[in-house]
Amino acid sequence: MASLWEYANPLKFMRTSERVLPYVAGAALLCLVGGLVWGFFFTPDDYRQGATIKIFYLHVPSAMMAINIWVMMLITSLVWLVRRHHVSALAARAAAPVGAVMTLIALVTGAIWGQPMWGTWWVWDPRLTSFLILFLFYLGYMALWAAIDDDDTAADLTSVLCLVGSVFAVLSRYAVNFWNQGLHQGASLSLDKAENVADVFWYPALLCIAGFVLLFVTLVIIRTNTEIRARRMRALLAREQVA
């Protein structure tokens, strides 16, 4: 069994990931369509929240992804800083816009959900506020990538930003909690099932979460491969000039 690091070679990564891509994409489509249709049409309305509960199937997975994508970027940034594998840095770069969009989806669906529940689109609740701050971190991260011409310099700087930013994002989370105790309900899903929503909501939600994860993997593979190709093109062009 070859080591995992073998896939750190851009070309090897590209070849392998493109073979896997159709299956991942197909599975993502299946899970998303299955989960959403099941959730939207084949689950009962909540006895308190009525049909608005349906937005749960978009809100919770996107919110989970928003945080997990940042964690994934943190890990890939560390891998880049320690082992200097290009794929790692490019994957972090590729994941950032997806993460930003997930955060945005979580915020927007949250607002749509919050309007009938709390009677307002927006409150300065700790969870909402931390997501807004997380969104700002995504924006800053992407802006820094975009601003720097040299790829390796950009990868180094954004990786350090990601590390330092993570610390401040966590700090902000606690600071915001301290600042205002909110309206938002506790975590909707946890591994402890006694605390959880009923099974009828739980299974389609799981399917949706799986769908979002697979969708993310699909998008990151596509975007990473695009970055690799762009980088390869620049390298080849530079070589032509030298020759």
């Binding site: 980088r231 390298a235 530079a238 032509e240």
Partner: peptide
């Protein structure tokens, strides 16, 4: 002066 075929470049991994 580096020639076109140089294989020591930082971008080598992409070629």
């Amino acid at each position: 002066e580096a020639k076109g075929g140089a294989n020591d470049s930082a971008d080598e991994a992409f070629l």
